[in-house]
Computed example of a mutant assay.
Amino acid sequence: MKALAKIAPVHIGCLAEELSDFAHEHFLEELAASYCMAPRPPFLPIAGLKALIRREPVSLAAFHSKQLRQWVKNTLATRKITAIYVFSGQMGQYVPQSWIGRLIVDLVDVDSAKFEAFAKDGSGPRAWIDARESKLLRDVEARLVERASSTLLVSHAEAQLLRSRISGQHDIRALSNGIDCSFFDPALIKPHPALGEGGPHLVFTGQMDYAPNIAAVSRMANDIMPRLIKALPQASFHIVGRAPSRDVTALKGVNGVSVVGEVPDTRPWLAGADMVVAPLTIARGVQNKVLEAMAMARPVVVTPDAATGIDAEHGRHFIIAENDGAFIHHITQLHSAGQQVAAMGLEARKLVRDQMSWRAMLADLPVLTGFAGGAVRDAA
């Protein structure tokens, strides 16, 4: 949003997950020519029922807001908007069918493929719901791509995946995430005191009501930690992230696991971690949690899925573990290799700083939005 605001006046429409999000409203006031921060509708089961009745994806129903839709309508009627930037497929529903200006759709990930993977791994009613969601989202993605001037994905692999699922010729390209290394700087942050004694302290960060994250920490707690503790009795695993589900909170105290929950700042937990782990079995696009840990000069142990989209070298910038046994082996080896760990952390930070800064990632924004060398009007 900061990069877009440097190109043209920006009008921002978004949803607040919970009341605490309104505490950050001042950032929108500073950035935007105008904005609407509408409460996200509660009660996901109700959204699910509405989606079934309307024959639409649950993802769309869960992000539907009459207040935000009216704000978009009013903004387009009263401002000289020449470009609309849609972030995530769920927000595409707010673009009026009558819109004929420039439309940039940033899908980030191919969500239909993610739910397809959920359906294959699941069983019973949940698998049916995920299969339905995948099919309907695939249609939504196709319609958005058809309308868009450009469609963006977070990595070249995701862009290629979308091309393989969409017929016709369209401008589908990668626009990766960046990292602010001046913010994620270990020199500025003191380690959290809870990560002082014992060890190794292993940390996972993320939104903890998100199915892939739930599966990842459950795998770590139930499958990896019992075997790791046999080799390293003082090993502990800390789950840091907002909205932990019941399945996640149930892991507290099991096999050296602590469930920290939401924190105002993840950096002290990253700074104090002996290692950051990302045992994800389903991962789309580029994992910010991995980039943030690398920027904080932490050694990171990841699955091949979590490493996707990051141009890093195994053994130099991070460690890729193919299975549970590999996680245990690499964590044990790193715990006894102080100099190697420090060197890996420094190499990881250098890679992120040099190749994955926001400035480098967003250099094409003026061209994408149609403001390169042209008259500055408004974007929404």
Results as ranks from 00 to 15, higher is better:
122 G>P: 09
3 A>F: 14
326 A>Q: 10
87 F>P: 09
17 E>T: 04
239 I>T: 03
271 A>D: 03
190 K>L: 15
266 T>W: 07
269 W>V: 06
74 N>E: 09
23 A>D: 08
64 H>A: 15
30 E>T: 13
135 K>I: 14
51 A>F: 11
248 V>T: 01
327 F>R: 07
67 Q>H: 07
119 A>F: 01
218 S>W: 06
279 P>I: 01
169 Q>N: 13
295 A>Q: 00
315 G>L: 05
198 G>F: 00
97 Q>V: 15
173 R>S: 05
339 Q>N: 06
31 L>K: 09
181 C>F: 12
158 E>D: 10
316 R>E: 11
152 L>W: 04
47 A>P: 06
375 A>W: 08
271 A>Y: 07
188 L>K: 11
344 M>W: 07
298 R>V: 01
250 A>D: 05
92 G>K: 02
293 A>V: 02
159 A>P: 06
132 R>P: 05
356 M>V: 02
145 V>G: 03
89 G>E: 07
46 I>E: 15
45 P>E: 10
119 A>L: 02
293 A>K: 02
33 A>S: 12
355 Q>D: 01
220 M>G: 01
359 R>M: 14
125 P>D: 15
300 V>Q: 01
367 V>E: 15
89 G>Y: 04
46 I>T: 14
65 S>P: 05
62 A>P: 07
56 E>C: 15
346 L>P: 11
133 E>D: 06
302 V>N: 01
28 L>R: 06
123 S>A: 14
182 S>H: 13
246 R>M: 03
292 E>Y: 00
28 L>F: 04
245 S>W: 02
144 L>Q: 10
172 I>T: 02
85 Y>F: 08
63 F>R: 12
336 S>G: 04
231 A>V: 10
145 V>Y: 02
75 T>P: 02
316 R>Q: 12
15 L>N: 03
127 A>P: 09
320 I>V: 11
36 C>E: 03
202 L>C: 03
83 A>F: 08
203 V>M: 00
147 R>N: 05
187 A>C: 12
173 R>D: 05
239 I>C: 03
279 P>W: 02
371 F>M: 10
378 D>H: 11
298 R>S: 00
186 P>C: 04
266 T>N: 11
202 L>N: 03
